[in-house]
């Protein structure tokens, strides 16, 4: 590879090699940049989760949790569909809490107050996970984070939820 003729400057062969590498890099960039950006586009695209969905009247909800199912329009690329989602909602002491029933451990559906071991807890039957009545995970059980929470809004006596639940810190 190294055929420097007299030790100073660069040889013709080296110059040609560098020029080859330069133009080669240019062509590779020209071809691959659009393709790579194209490939990773979903990762960089901001998903719009704006908007609210109505789930019922505020008066329907009492201090005990109630499971409601509601439909959300989902845009998956070119495919739009209505997906069914659900939330545990309670209205206690004038504060409305809407929790996603998806267990933070492995994504099973949690149930309210069905385990005799711990009454008034969310119970995940898959791996015996527990969350307390505020949806905070009980230490020592599999889940490592509290249940996700929907943003709530009250409008004309109707309860609106955000389209996607947000994770909460804590525990």
């Amino acid at each position: 590879m190294s055929d420097k003729e007299n030790g100073q400057g660069m040889s013709r062969r080296q110059f040609l090699t560098y020029t080859l590498m330069g133009t080669g890099a240019f062509m590779a960039a020209g071809i691959l940049t659009p393709m790579l950006r194209f490939a990773v586009d979903p990762a960089l695209k901001r998903t719009s989760s704006a908007g609210k969905v109505e789930v019922g009247k505020v008066d329907d909800f009492g201090p005990d949790y109630k499971l409601v199912k509601f439909k959300v329009k989902i845009k998956d690329g070119w495919h739009e569909e209505e997906a069914e989602k659900s939330a545990y909602i309670r209205n206690k002491d004038g504060k409305i809490l809407a929790l996603s029933p998806i267990c933070k451990h492995l994504g099973c559906q949690v149930q309210w107050n069905t385990s005799p071991d711990r009454p008034n807890h969310f119970y995940c039957p898959c791996h015996n996970g527990f969350y307390d009545e505020n949806g905070i995970n009980v230490p020592g059980t599999p889940p490592q984070a509290p249940l996700d929470e929907y943003e709530v809004e009250v409008k004309d006596g109707k309860l609106l939820l955000s389209l996607t639940p947000k994770p909460r810190g804590g525990a």
């Binding site: 659009p34 393709m35 586009d41 070119w78």
Partner: peptide
């Protein structure tokens, strides 16, 4: 729909 999507909605879709 997927062709339309990849051409119009995905970055550089027109070019690829």
């Amino acid at each position: 729909q997927s062709v339309k999507y990849l051409q119009n909605e995905v970055a550089f879709g027109v070019i690829v």
